[in-house]
Design a protein around this nucleic acid. Structure first.
Lengths: 180, 180
DNA sequence: CTGCAACTTTGCACTCAGTGCATCAATAGC
DNA sequence: GCTATTGATGCACTGAGTGCAAAGTTGCAG
């Protein structure tokens, strides 16, 4: 979407606070009013929400082999999260760069994580044959793995060595070892 | 602070979206302009930030006995988080109720968590004698434990049985067992 | 008591976010 | 060529948030 790209480009070099919706709309050659037909807020435009990716995760959880442990399933969820299916790799990189370097975006980013967490929790519950809301485990697993994944991105943003994928693997090892 | 109380009361029975800053200010008997001398936003007023509580957590981490494992240290952090030192217990209860029942507040709440996570990560790094940003472990531990704590609150909000403290204990057991 | 200094509150004007509504343009289907 | 549906837009409005300067308040020294 042109608006998403425009938002990313502008925020990239001026910062979120110094970009107005009018400017984003202008760069995408639409009116400001039209902007709100596609995104409910400035944050959302920068985030560039693909509403269906949440369901994709649920399907992923449901589709993994029955003998995989929840943690193994979550490893795939984490992988999927870090390799989003965006057509343009150039755009993906800019997106990741902007999202992580813009502290004002953290709340929006985490708000999105809440929806993901709820979805994954429900999917895990179904997978384990539990009645929703009774067992603490699914939610704790979903929450902690997502948090660990985010922690890796954070860690990486601060100039860590190695690839993001290596960090995620290491994080899963730490989790599997009981955070010891 | 009168503004914080006013904000909580109004949001409690009308919802965040239907309360304006003018109303909050009016109920606290100050002008709307004065509101912004104390809180930068509506969210902040409802949240009622005590900026020093973040440093309290850092001190807690630094002060725990040297032979405690990081996970044991974090158990105390979690406890401290769930039992905040607010003078008025009545107010505390209303606060917890409002914060959890108001989805619009989630981003603000999580934004605050980011600051806590950064602080705790740094404190753990110091405790373990690591150069900041080199080792993944401190951040992963901080992030996952805080996420698990939040998951317990979430779980509890959805009508789980038992006390919150019991849930937290159970969550720590799950973490210590490697999320198995 | 008086006057001064520091701090707080307030009013005012402004920009920007976001919404509802009505209108207008384009395009597909007949 | 006509029309109906869909999307784009203009307009007017409410509310968030900021900067600035005036007004009020409080404490204190003379």
């Amino acid at each position: 979407m042109a608006l998403h790209r425009a938002a990313l480009e502008l925020v990239e070099d001026r910062g979120l606070a110094d970009v107005t919706i009018d400017e984003i709309a202008a760069r995408a050659d639409v009116s400001a009013r039209t902007f709100f037909n596609y995104f409910p807020s400035k944050d959302a435009a920068v985030l560039g929400s693909q509403p269906d990716d949440v369901e994709r995760l649920a399907a992923l959880v449901a589709g993994r082999p029955a003998d995989e442990t929840p943690l193994e399933v979550m490893r795939h969820v984490s992988r999927t999260l870090l390799a989003p299916t965006s057509a343009d790799p150039q755009l993906r990189l800019m997106r990741r760069r902007v999202l992580l370097s813009e502290p004002l975006l953290a709340p929006a980013l985490l708000g999105r994580n809440v929806r993901i967490e709820d979805t994954v929790t429900a999917a895990l519950e179904r997978r384990l044959g539990l009645t929703p809301g009774t067992d603490l485990r699914p939610r704790v697993i979903a929450a902690t793995v997502l948090a660990a994944t985010r922690a890796c991105m954070e860690h990486h943003q601060q100039g860590a060595t190695g690839t993001l994928e290596e960090s995620v693997d290491e994080a899963f090892d730490i989790l599997a070892a009981g955070l010891r």
